[in-house]
């Protein structure tokens, strides 16, 4: 009896030892700053010279006196609302295509996955050239079909679509997940459906899609969270300015500008908590809705 308890304890202890780096990291680098930023969001903290308690003034100013806060929130919501469904559908569509058994499929899979490997500033600079209204490849290609291309990054109505368009280019990352999950779908299901005379669309709609819903769910949750945090794209592609008529002033970019250009750190921290609450609520809603449409294999419905 005693020995068993010891063994269990030992095992527990070992477990903690193994995750110790993470625990230390979490407390020191995540939880600590988190608590600090919450407390400092009620102050006029500017890092170097002041930290006085000012109550809810930051939050009050944000909601009542700051038009740019609403602009940045609108821009971010616009981006999330369009980019998440489009990239998710795009990734599923692409993986369905790449799930076919045709010669050279490995080659295509590699090609479509490549953009996901190339990420960061280099890609944004590349796209700035591609999207150039006068000499860019995108408008040149549109010109072949007689379509006069828009001014993309110079026209406030087209900056966000341009970013979403760019995101579509790198759906390869999500594609990989879907492809893996599609290959895990049992062949017998398709065989049975075929015998019953199901068309390929029906097979896709009623077998493939339901079977990969756990991955869709995972993808939507993580890319929603990521979508709200869009920063780099806007920072690089608008030279940190926020683009024409502030059309690329996303939430995090505005927050960064408040923190590191105006040194209004308390204000920026208040902003980050509002974003945290928004993302938190959306994730909760997602989790609540999940049982309605996500199927796990072998689960009763």
């Amino acid at each position: 009896m005693r020995k068993k308890l010891n063994y269990k304890r030992m095992e527990g202890l070992q477990g903690y030892v193994f995750i110790l780096p993470w625990i230390v990291g979490f407390i020191a680098f995540t939880a600590g700053p988190l608590i600090f930023s919450f407390a400092a969001s009620f102050t006029n903290y500017n890092i170097t010279s002041q930290m006085d308690f000012i109550g809810f003034k930051n939050y009050e100013n944000l909601f009542t006196a700051d038009n740019l806060f609403w602009t940045s929130l609108y821009n971010t919501l616009y981006y999330v609302l369009f980019s998440i469904p489009l990239t998710t559908a795009g990734a599923i569509f692409l993986s369905a295509l790449l799930n076919q058994d045709v010669p050279g499929i490995r080659f295509f899979r590699t090609i479509y996955y490549l953009p996901a490997v190339l990420s960061g500033v280099g890609v944004y600079l590349l796209w700035m050239q591609l999207l150039d209204p006068g000499t860019g490849l995108v408008n040149t290609a549109l010109g072949w079909f007689g379509i006069p291309g828009p001014n993309w990054l110079f026209d406030p109505d087209w900056t966000k679509p341009a970013l979403i368009f760019m995101k579509m280019w790198s759906v390869g990352g999500g594609m990989l997940l879907y492809l893996a999950s599609m290959q895990g779908v049992s062949k017998s299901l398709y065989e049975a459906a075929k015998i019953d005379g199901a068309s390929s669309w029906q097979q896709f709609r009623f077998i493939t899609i339901p079977m990969i819903t756990p991955v869709i769910f995972f993808d939507i949750v993580t890319s929603l969270i990521g979508g709200f945090q869009i920063f780099q794209e806007a920072y690089v592609m608008s030279n940190g300015e926020g683009g024409p008529v502030n059309s690329m002033l996303f939430y995090n970019l505005y927050m960064w500008k408040k923190a590191f250009e105006s040194f209004d750190m308390g204000y920026a921290m208040a902003m980050s908590w509002i974003l945290f609450i928004i993302v938190f609520l959306i994730t909760i809603i997602n989790l609540k809705l999940a049982p309605r449409w996500v199927h796990y294999e072998g689960e009763e419905r």
């Binding site: 740019l68 008529v245 502030n246 002033l249 040194f263």
Partner: peptide, 16 residues
């Protein structure tokens, strides 16, 4: 310090 954030969009709107 960040006043150009407010001025730039107005100037952009005028030019556009």
């Amino acid at each position: 310090p960040d006043f150009m954030n407010l001025v730039n969009p107005e100037l952009d709107s005028i030019l556009l």
